[in-house]
Computed example of a mutant assay.
Amino acid sequence: MSDDKSKSGNQDRLRINVNEDYELRDWSAKFGVTPEQLKAAVAKVGVMAADVEKALKNN
């Protein structure tokens, strides 16, 4: 099931989908990391933005 881009709400803000170019770009910019670093963090801790942010701050 693909993202419904007409419905952006809390779920979209809480989870990171690294398979969507715009999300990869936006989340990478938000956290100040490269797309590769973001993908590695998601692979390590999962898709929840708060968990990814913590993981990136600990590196």
Score class of each variant (00 low, 15 high):
2 S>P: 15
2 S>A: 15
3 D>Y: 13
3 D>P: 00
4 D>V: 08
4 D>H: 05
5 K>H: 15
5 K>L: 13
5 K>M: 08
5 K>G: 02
6 S>W: 07
6 S>F: 14
6 S>H: 13
7 K>M: 09
9 G>P: 00
13 R>H: 09
13 R>C: 01
13 R>I: 01
14 L>D: 07
16 I>G: 02
16 I>K: 03
16 I>H: 02
16 I>E: 01
17 N>C: 08
17 N>Y: 13
18 V>Y: 12
19 N>C: 13
19 N>M: 13
19 N>D: 15
19 N>I: 03
20 E>W: 10
20 E>M: 12
22 Y>A: 14
23 E>L: 12
23 E>Y: 08
23 E>W: 04
23 E>P: 02
25 R>V: 05
27 W>R: 10
27 W>L: 07
28 S>M: 05
28 S>E: 06
29 A>K: 13
30 K>S: 07
30 K>Y: 07
30 K>D: 06
30 K>Q: 10
30 K>G: 00
31 F>A: 03
31 F>C: 03
32 G>Y: 05
32 G>K: 03
33 V>Y: 09
33 V>E: 04
33 V>K: 07
35 P>E: 13
35 P>A: 08
36 E>A: 14
36 E>F: 09
37 Q>S: 15
39 K>A: 11
39 K>Y: 05
40 A>I: 01
41 A>V: 05
41 A>S: 12
42 V>G: 02
43 A>H: 11
43 A>G: 12
44 K>E: 15
44 K>W: 00
44 K>H: 12
45 V>I: 02
46 G>N: 01
46 G>D: 04
48 M>G: 00
48 M>L: 14
49 A>R: 06
49 A>V: 07
50 A>W: 01
51 D>Y: 05
51 D>E: 09
52 V>P: 03
52 V>D: 03
52 V>K: 03
52 V>T: 01
53 E>G: 07
55 A>V: 04
55 A>R: 10
56 L>C: 10
56 L>Y: 11
57 K>V: 13
57 K>F: 10
59 N>W: 10
